[in-house]
Amino acid sequence: KELVLALYDYQEKSPREVTMKKGDILTLLNSTNKDWWKVEVNGRQGFVPAAYVKKL
């Protein structure tokens, strides 16, 4: 599985998104969309802005 690092805090704005804190390590589930990547964090799956994370 591929991991990404949260570069910034992000507060979810819809049920399809997830909240993350700067420094969190997230599991990358899908990065086919250039703007929104699907990740898993704390057992929850959802989208975060691709610009807010970096592949490890």
Rank of each mutant, 00 (worst) to 15 (best):
G23D: 06
L3P: 04
W36T: 02
K22S: 08
K13F: 05
N33M: 09
V18K: 02
D9T: 06
K38M: 15
L3C: 11
K21E: 07
Q45H: 09
K34W: 07
D24T: 08
F47A: 03
G43Y: 06
A51I: 11
R44I: 09
K13M: 14
L5I: 15
G43E: 07
D9K: 03
V53N: 00
K13W: 05
L7W: 04
D24I: 04
Q45T: 14
V53P: 00
A51E: 12
G46M: 05
N30D: 15
V39T: 01
L29S: 03
N30H: 08
G46H: 02
V39R: 00
L26C: 12
K1N: 12
N33C: 10
N30R: 07
T27W: 13
K55G: 07
G43H: 07
K54V: 15
T27I: 15
E2N: 12
K1P: 15
W37T: 04
L5C: 09
E12S: 14
Y8K: 12
K54L: 13
G43M: 07
D9F: 04
K21C: 10
W37A: 05
T19L: 03
Y10H: 04
L28S: 02
L3N: 07
K34F: 09
K54H: 11
N42P: 10
L5F: 10
E12N: 07
E40M: 08
F47T: 04
T19R: 06
V53F: 05
L5Q: 12
R16L: 15
D35I: 14
L7S: 03
P49H: 02
E17K: 04
A51C: 14
L7E: 05
V53A: 03
L3G: 03
K55I: 15
K34A: 14
A6W: 02
W36M: 07
T27E: 14
N33G: 10
Q45E: 14
V41L: 15
I25E: 04
Y52G: 09
L3Y: 14
A6T: 04
K22E: 07
V41M: 13
D35A: 11
Y52L: 14
K22G: 05
V18P: 01
D9W: 03
V48T: 02
W37V: 08
M20R: 00
L5V: 15
L56A: 05
N33Q: 10
V41E: 04
E17D: 06
D24M: 14
K34M: 11
D24R: 03
K54A: 13
E2A: 11
A51F: 09
W36V: 03
K13N: 10
V41S: 14
D24C: 06
T19A: 08
W37F: 08
E17Q: 10
G23Y: 04
V18E: 01
K38G: 06
K13I: 09
G46I: 04
V4S: 03
L28K: 01
G23S: 03
T27L: 14
D35H: 13
K34Y: 08
R16K: 12
A6S: 06
T19Y: 04
L7K: 06
E12H: 09
E40Q: 08
P49C: 04
Y52M: 14
W37H: 03
Y52F: 15
T32L: 11
V4T: 03
K13S: 12
K22H: 06
M20K: 00
L29R: 03
G23W: 06
K22N: 05
L26W: 02
D35F: 15
Y10Q: 00
L29I: 15
V53L: 15
Q45G: 06
L26P: 02
N30I: 08
I25R: 05
V41R: 14
K22F: 05
E12M: 13
T32M: 12
Q45R: 12
E40W: 06
N30Y: 06
Q11F: 15
E12Y: 05
K38S: 08
K13R: 12
V41Y: 10
T27H: 12
A51M: 11
Q45M: 10
S31M: 10
T27G: 08
M20W: 02
D24Y: 05
R44L: 08
L28H: 01
D35E: 13
P49N: 03
N30C: 11
K22R: 11
W37R: 02
K38P: 02
A50V: 06
L28M: 03
A6D: 00
K55S: 10
L7V: 07
V4Y: 11
E12L: 08
D9H: 06
A51H: 13
G43S: 07
P49G: 01
T32R: 10
L28V: 07
L56S: 04
K55C: 09
E17S: 07
L28F: 03
Q11I: 15
Y52Q: 07
K1S: 12
V48L: 02
L29F: 04
L56D: 04
L5P: 00
T27F: 12
K38T: 09
D9P: 06
I25Y: 06
L5N: 02
